[in-house]
Computed example of a mutant assay.
Amino acid sequence: MTDVQNTPAAKTVLTDAENFDVVHPLNSEWTLWFDNPSRRTNASSWTQNLKEIVTLATVEDFWGVHGNVTKAVDLPNGSNYHLFRKGIKPMWEDPANANGGRWGIQLQRSVGGKANDLWLNTLLACIGETFDSSTDVCGAVFSNRKQCFRIAIWTRNAMDKEACEAIGRHLKTVLNGEHQLEYMPHSDNSKSGPKVLYSV
Results as ranks from 00 to 15, higher is better:
109 R>E: 07
66 H>V: 10
35 D>C: 02
199 S>G: 09
173 T>D: 08
87 G>W: 02
64 G>H: 05
52 E>G: 00
69 V>M: 14
53 I>D: 02
99 N>E: 14
140 A>Q: 04
195 K>F: 00
26 L>I: 09
95 P>G: 05
178 E>T: 08
10 A>L: 13
151 I>A: 04
188 D>N: 13
162 E>P: 00
12 T>A: 05
32 L>H: 02
129 E>H: 05
189 N>F: 02
24 H>Y: 14
76 P>D: 11
50 L>N: 02
118 L>E: 03
172 K>A: 12
163 A>S: 15
65 V>R: 00
115 A>S: 12
82 H>A: 07
197 L>S: 05
44 S>Y: 05
131 F>T: 01
146 K>F: 01
54 V>Y: 14
91 M>F: 00
79 S>H: 01
41 T>M: 08
173 T>E: 12
177 G>C: 09
84 F>Q: 11
194 P>R: 10
17 A>Q: 11
161 K>M: 09
128 G>P: 04
82 H>N: 10
181 L>G: 03
22 V>I: 15
195 K>P: 03
168 G>R: 08
46 W>N: 13
1 M>L: 10
49 N>Y: 01
190 S>H: 12
134 S>G: 00
49 N>P: 00
47 T>K: 15
177 G>V: 06
106 Q>G: 06
193 G>S: 06
151 I>F: 03
168 G>L: 10
3 D>K: 11
29 E>N: 13
65 V>K: 00
131 F>W: 06
109 R>M: 08
148 C>I: 00
98 A>Y: 05
9 A>E: 13
27 N>T: 12
31 T>N: 05
189 N>M: 12
80 N>K: 02
101 G>M: 07
127 I>F: 12
56 L>H: 00
32 L>E: 02
18 E>W: 09
145 R>Y: 01
26 L>W: 06
50 L>F: 01
32 L>S: 03
112 G>W: 01
106 Q>S: 14
132 D>Y: 00
14 L>V: 04
104 G>P: 01
145 R>I: 04
149 F>C: 02
47 T>W: 00
200 V>C: 15
85 R>C: 03
30 W>E: 03
1 M>P: 06
125 A>D: 01
176 N>V: 02
20 F>H: 14
45 S>C: 01
145 R>E: 09
13 V>R: 07
121 N>A: 15
145 R>K: 15
119 W>Q: 06
17 A>T: 09
14 L>G: 12
100 G>P: 08
70 T>F: 00
184 M>A: 11
134 S>Y: 09
56 L>C: 04
181 L>I: 14
68 N>L: 08
130 T>L: 04
141 V>Y: 05
107 L>F: 09
181 L>K: 03
4 V>H: 13
139 G>F: 02
26 L>D: 06
31 T>V: 10
192 S>N: 13
192 S>I: 10
42 N>V: 04
196 V>Q: 08
